[in-house]
Design a protein around this nucleic acid. Structure first.
Length: 775
DNA sequence: ACTTGGTCATTTTTT
DNA sequence: ATGACCAAGT
């Protein structure tokens, strides 16, 4: 057996061996938190605690799996098997499968993902004939989500005049009705959304003391990772379960709390000592991950936050290189700089692709980066964004399977009733939906004895509906004797789903077919893995797994090492030798949505802190002066976070060092064939002095070899000021001669309508069009 | 009932 | 730029 205690420093060891009672581990970034958690569990087991009595809640399922493996290394795989580990959502989904009947849920309940929820809300809003511009489904959902996360039921909502008033003020007086209807419809469909998994668990534990007692007894030791990101609902579950034995161990770092937008309450960690008696506090402050430069730089940033626990992260690691800052003109150039830099680093330092990560604030930023990497032929993988399971063809296929498991799943039914097209249109589905609501049954039940209801359908439509329901019933029968893979395969064949995709013929169509194949393979793998582990390999369980999977979970067995691209949120808990943090611009990072209140801005700052502390050896910060947003080219200012880092940790890269010449970039990008001497930088940061004290002290350093211009117009504006006016005859490199009919917009977005002799009237963006004025 | 072409909104972050 | 949604045509 590994002598794990030897691998720990004093404070880590103390946290590992402490046995009974409530404890909190404040773990700075890179301080070996996972290691402590892992060894702590292993240690408990070595001390004779039955693995059956340990519950460990992690932030991702991947983290749970890895931790389980590592514990298995210490105590033996078979010992580790009984450990209950996973995310809040997956652990309590499983409990609800077996206990949900108390609440009137079937054990095969469906888990609605965000899309299902939004669709359901859309139809409710439509049925109620409400203005969908005032009641935006997504916003309504997030409002409902925040109710649920605070345990505000429909009833509680109606009892709270303040909430009602708030919604009235927000022009949404019918919020309560929608909430009510939404909850009912989910219930009727035998479905829970993500928040229900927590809310209903709370309901279960509160309303049924015997159930509570059962799980309290079972979970004698509870460990919660990333405690700073728990919401109120999760907080209450933990408190209820730990109430009996008080063996609750929470781990977290208030400086890394980045999920307030989904209800995470930083107070949970700040107040832990108040919530439990005789709390033992452990602090892990030594960072083993990053160079001293990075640690200190990160500290200098997070210092600016007011709400935080007292903690000083330090390291014995070497100084390391300074953090490199690069400014580029465009996002395209930003991407190319990074691709070049990664390439150079790999060549010079003999590194693998997997040593690099590119982190960004929003998923939309990945495109430009991906383009640049692809052009350089650098293998990479984008995490998050549209995951495999969110693709239309996959969701459609899964919807059949969902419907099979839970015929009341209305969102699944609506998805597939006319896919592939079988002539059952929206009008028909609406009729069915109305009738089903009226008779308080599901559409599936309605269809099952269609003849007993008068729905005013013509016989053709009726036949089609009967055809559909007969097919589904056929599937159900098959499902009784087949395993998950065989069922799925059968369904795909029978529905001619593939054949429908084949009709398309485009490359996308082909890849859709491959995706469906891939899904089938995935189910096959799933069965094998589950069999190996001697766990549930049913189709129902597969669907649950899929619904709660994070993007890391379907990581292919790592073939080639790849550069990782992901949002900073997704990067939490990960580490990479070389990290590029991109798009450090005001309104992007910090996000324009998060600059209204101090607490929002502090969360952005924590996000930046998280990003920086992912880096082991070297961090790069990049920003662009212009960027496409909602299709338009906009000017950007450098992020305030750049100023907030103590300057002594930074090194400003200049164009020269980026090796490839500026000119090349410029020509390719937006500057057309304009001579280089026309290009001017915008004046760098010019912030109002009042904003922050540090801003006054630390002047941003522009690259030295570039001239500043006192009153520069945006660089582009100069270029497009070539005075094209209506009536000009111009020459286009491709289209030839033409007459300017109209000019609209200005700056980068200036467009002109031009009638060419060769191709007729064209509308061109002047920034791209290579035009010369003839007369 | 489906297809097509045009208009509009969309970009925080995720289980 | 891209995709979702809607109105009018087939």
């Amino acid at each position: 057996m590994i002598n794990y205690l030897k691998n720990l420093n004093e404070s880590q060891k103390a946290a590992v061996v402490h046995k009974e009672g409530p404890m909190i581990i404040i773990a700075g970034a890179g301080s070996g938190k996972t290691r402590v958690l892992t060894y702590r569990i292993a240690h408990l087991m070595n001390q004779g605690v039955d693995s059956f009595n340990i519950l460990s809640l992690t932030f991702t399922n991947k983290a749970a799996r890895e931790m389980k493996d590592r514990i298995g290394d210490v105590v033996g795989t078979s010992e580790a098997k009984n450990l209950w580990m996973g995310t809040f959502h997956s652990v309590f989904a499983r409990i609800l499968r077996s206990e949900g009947s108390h609440l009137g849920y079937p054990s095969n309940f469906t888990i609605y993902d965000t899309q299902d929820a939004v669709r359901l809300l859309s139809s409710i809003i439509k049925e109620k004939q409400l203005d969908k511009d005032k009641y935006k489904p997504k916003q309504v959902l997030s409002r409902i989500s925040s109710f649920k996360n605070s345990l505000i039921t429909v009833k509680a909502y109606y009892n709270d005049p303040e909430l009602i008033e708030a919604d009235k003020m927000a022009q949404r007086p019918k919020m309560g009705e929608i909430y009510h209807q939404y909850v009912e419809r989910c219930f009727k469909a035998g479905a829970m959304d993500f928040d229900d998994l927590l809310l209903r668990t709370n309901e279960l534990l509160t309303r049924f003391p015997e159930v509570l007692a059962k799980y309290q007894d079972r979970f004698k030791y509870i460990l919660v990772d990333e405690y700073q990101d728990t919401n109120h609902s999760q907080y209450l579950i933990v408190r209820a379960l730990a109430d009996r034995f008080q063996n609750i161990c929470v781990v977290g770092d208030d400086s890394q709390s980045i999920y307030a937008f989904r209800g995470a309450n930083i107070q949970n960690i700040l107040n832990f000592q108040r919530d439990y008696d005789k709390v033992q506090i452990f602090k892990l402050e030594q960072n083993y991950r990053s160079s001293n430069n990075i640690v200190q730089a990160a500290n200098s940033v997070i210092e600016k936050n007011k709400t935080k626990l007292d903690k000083e992260v330090w390291t014995e690691n070497s100084e390391g290189p300074k953090i490199k800052v690069m400014r580029t003109y465009t996002e395209g150039e930003e991407g190319r700089f990074i691709a070049d830099s990664i390439f150079d680093n790999m060549m010079n330092l003999q590194l693998k692709n997997s040593d690099f990560a590119i982190l960004y604030r929003t998923n939309a930023q990945s495109r430009a980066l991906e383009d640049a990497l692809r052009k350089k032929d650098i293998k990479h993988r984008i995490y998050g964004g549209l995951s495999f399971y969110q693709r239309k063809e996959i969701k459609d296929t899964l919807a059949y399977l969902r419907l099979l498991i839970n015929p009341n799943d209305e969102e699944a039914l609506k998805r597939v009733i006319n896919y592939p097209m079988r002539g059952i249109g929206v009008a028909t589905v609406d009729k069915l939906s109305v009738a089903a609501n009226h008779y308080k049954i599901s559409i599936f039940e309605l269809l099952r004895d269609l003849n007993n209801y008068d729905l005013n359908l013509n016989s053709g439509t009726k036949n089609k509906l009967v055809g559909f329901i007969t097919m589904m019933q056929h599937f159900q029968i098959e499902a009784q004797s087949k395993n998950a893979f065989e069922v799925a395969e059968f369904v795909v064949k029978q529905t001619r789903l593939i054949r429908d995709l084949e009709k398309d013929g485009t490359p996308e169509g082909v890849s859709r077919i491959e995706n469906v194949q891939e899904l089938l393979n995935g189910i096959k793998d799933f069965i094998e893995v589950q069999k190996e582990k001697d766990e549930d390999d049913s189709l129902a369980f597969f669907l649950e797994d899929v619904a709660l999977a994070t993007d890391f979970d379907n990581d292919k067995k790592d073939e080639t090492p790849r550069v990782s691209l992901m949002t900073i949120h997704l990067a939490k808990g990960l580490e990479f030798p070389y990290v590029y943090i991109v798009g450090l611009e005001e309104n992007l990072f910090p996000s324009a949505m998060s600059m209204n209140t101090r607490s929002e801005l502090e969360e952005e700052r924590r996000l930046f802190y998280v990003a920086l502390t992912r880096a082991e050896k070297q961090a790069y910060l990049t920003y662009a002066q212009t960027r496409y947003r909602w299709g338009k080219l906009v000017d950007c200012e450098p992020s305030r976070f750049l100023e907030e880092i103590d300057e002594k940790f930074l090194e400003y890269l200049t164009v020269k060092e980026s090796k490839h010449t500026q000119t090349k970039f410029i020509n390719e990008d937006i500057f057309g064939s304009v001579p280089q001497n026309k290009i001017r930088f915008k004046k760098p940061i010019q912030r109002s002095p009042a904003k922050s004290k540090t801003a006054q002290k630390i002047e941003f350093q522009p690259p030295k070899n570039l001239k500043k211009v006192t009153n520069p117009a945006s660089p582009k504006a100069n270029l497009f000021d070539n005075n094209i006016v209506v009536g000009n005859i111009v020459n286009h490199t491709k289209f030839g001669k033409g007459e300017v009919l109209s000019v609209e917009g200005n700056g980068a977005n200036q467009k002109a309508e031009i009638r060419f002799a060769s191709v007729g009237v064209k509308k061109l963006l002047l920034q791209f069009a290579r035009l010369t004025i003839i007369s």
